[in-house]
Design a protein around this nucleic acid. Structure first.
Lengths: 335, 335
DNA sequence: TTGAAAGCGCTAACAG
DNA sequence: CTGTTAGCGCTTTCAA
């Protein structure tokens, strides 16, 4: 039970050199003879010495960790973003501190404080709610949702949600839908509103009117809520033939709600979702969905983070990525 | 652009006290007058000073962070465990470093090295592959899967998978199934084998024989693989009337595979899954599934971690939690 | 090519 | 009640 951690000084003594030399060998900087290196490495090996990351971080004032703040890691879309980020961060030697907020502004703020205290080199907020200015120049990147109070200077990476909503609606129009509705939950996610705008634009452009009762704005993103809301609208006698849903979870709820009301998808009502999450592919019926380029979003995030860490000026602070439709059974006429 | 971080000494000077006093005020230990406290707090406030966590961690040799290693955060079951852990850790002031391994032993080992270097106070491996002995007494907790080389001393928290498999099979037997099969992917997860054991025990106890061709062992946990495997078996003329699946994802694949082969669930074949993940509830048809007590698993993990951090002796090192069936459409006869 | 020494920012004796 | 001081383990000048 040798619970006393061995440190660089002991390695130095055992190798018969100074701590400076050991440090040089470990970090491969400065100069040292082949022979010295061999000896030091041997001692390190034997004692399976591992430098103390905290001391190193303190000394260099560089903590190799970044915080990723996310509303809900159970949500497949967020989880994909998180995973794409984590892989890239690991690849360049950073660890990922994960902070789940449950959509609570207080918890979000609490996590931000903790991250700042831990001296992380940057924070990526997936669907962050508001702007943070953490004293010194801690890089903060907003991903996937516009925070309140967004300015020109804020780094924002998101899909072109308006265009996505437009394309989703258009795909259904192309399938011949005439009485289209939209299922969204706008209360906490600005993206849903952008998608709604696109939806409106497509319908207006096609000369279709929008029945306000078919703009179904649920106050929760759960599929059960959507299910009830959709079933209720249908039972009230509304007869939509197409439903754009601003997430795949809402699409699942819509399909279930339609069934509850005795309607089949896609035969009676066509449905298209958003995010192209894993359930869209696996569901019965498979769900047409707007695909977001997660990998590219993560890639940009890391690029920006690296630039910010180096103190470089950013050429571009806001990124809008195109989406595209993945067509599946729920959104097309049977052939 | 006051990019120079303010430190405790500057706060001390500005308040006209010593660093020791500032430290005492911040950490609420030692004694100090109300008046001093007020002054110090005011200065801290004005400069929105935040103590440097790295320095504190180095000094106290206590890094308030724990690593959570997980094969795949896109998997709903793992994500739930991760979330349950993260919430508890945040509540007691620790941050969660998330490490995704993609089931790769090398990546897992790489993450373990990184965590050890960062001096985290403990590591929780969700479905870790092998035993780790990280030099000094870094607490390592295995959650949800037995690592290779498991010993008495290893801390292991898992569901009683054998019993779970037994109950799943029994539920189908209770529904009148006679020709039962099992869909699993045993190559990387010992739990699947345990569930298979339970399955065998139930069938043998009920006097049912097992057709080896209905032990469908896919080499991937993806639903697509299961779908193909199940469809293929059915097309070969096999006629199972019940399928136990060792995960919900495999259950989804089985349902799709059955449909591909012209069979309906539950009418022709009844299906029960494992994990009671979110898709089980949302799927069409809803999938009967064995529920695991995620919250309790997380709770035990944190309890053990806290005990280990305090250097206490553990009363119990291995935990086996009961599972129970959540019955849904896929696993019961229509009434 | 190497070593000595000065801290990074903080905590915790130990004195007063 | 408060201040002085010695490090935590490491990197990095500056000399040798």
């Amino acid at each position: 039970m040798k619970s006393d951690k061995i440190n660089i000084r002991q390695i130095a003594e055992l190798s018969g050199v100074s701590v400076a030399t050991v440090s040089r060998v470990i970090n491969q900087n400065g100069r040292f003879s082949k022979e010295t290196e061999r000896r030091v490495r041997a001692v390190i090996e034997q004692n399976n010495y591992m430098p103390n990351g905290m001391a190193k971080a303190l000394r260099t004032s560089h903590m190799p960790a970044v915080g990723v703040v996310v509303p809900d890691i159970l949500n497949n879309h967020f989880a994909r973003l998180l995973l794409a980020l984590e892989k890239r961060l690991f690849a360049i030697g950073y660890s990922t501190i994960i902070c789940n907020t449950d959509e609570s502004a207080e918890i979000e703020a609490g996590h931000m404080r903790m991250l700042a205290a831990q001296q992380v080199v940057g924070v990526i907020l997936i669907s962050g709610r508001c702007l943070y200015q953490m004293g010194d120049g801690l890089p903060v990147i907003y991903l996937d949702r516009r925070p309140e109070g967004l300015t020109q200077d804020t780094v924002l990476i998101e899909s072109d949600n308006e265009a996505g909503g437009y394309m989703a609606a258009n795909s259904l129009i192309g399938q011949g839908c005439q009485r289209m509705g939209i299922v969204l939950s706008s209360h906490l996610d600005s993206n849903h509103n952008a998608r709604l705008q696109g939806f409106r634009r497509a319908l207006s452009q096609a000369g279709l009117s929008i029945d306000p009762e078919l703009v179904i704005d649920t106050n929760s993103s759960s599929f059960e809520t959507a299910r009830c809301a959709v079933a209720e609208v249908l039972q009230r006698g509304k007869r939509p033939d197409g439903l754009v849903c601003t997430t795949d979870e809402l699409a699942v709820g819509s399909i279930l709600g339609a069934r509850d009301a005795g309607k089949a998808v896609p035969d009676d009502i066509m449905v298209v979702g958003f995010d192209d999450s894993s359930i869209a592919e696996a569901y019965n019926p498979p769900i047409s969905s707007m695909h977001q380029d997660i990998e590219q979003m993560a890639e940009y995030s890391i690029e920006v983070l690296k630039a910010l860490m180096k103190g470089e000026e950013l050429k571009q602070r806001q990124f809008h990525l195109p989406t595209y439709l993945v067509e599946r059974t729920s959104g097309r006429r049977k052939s």
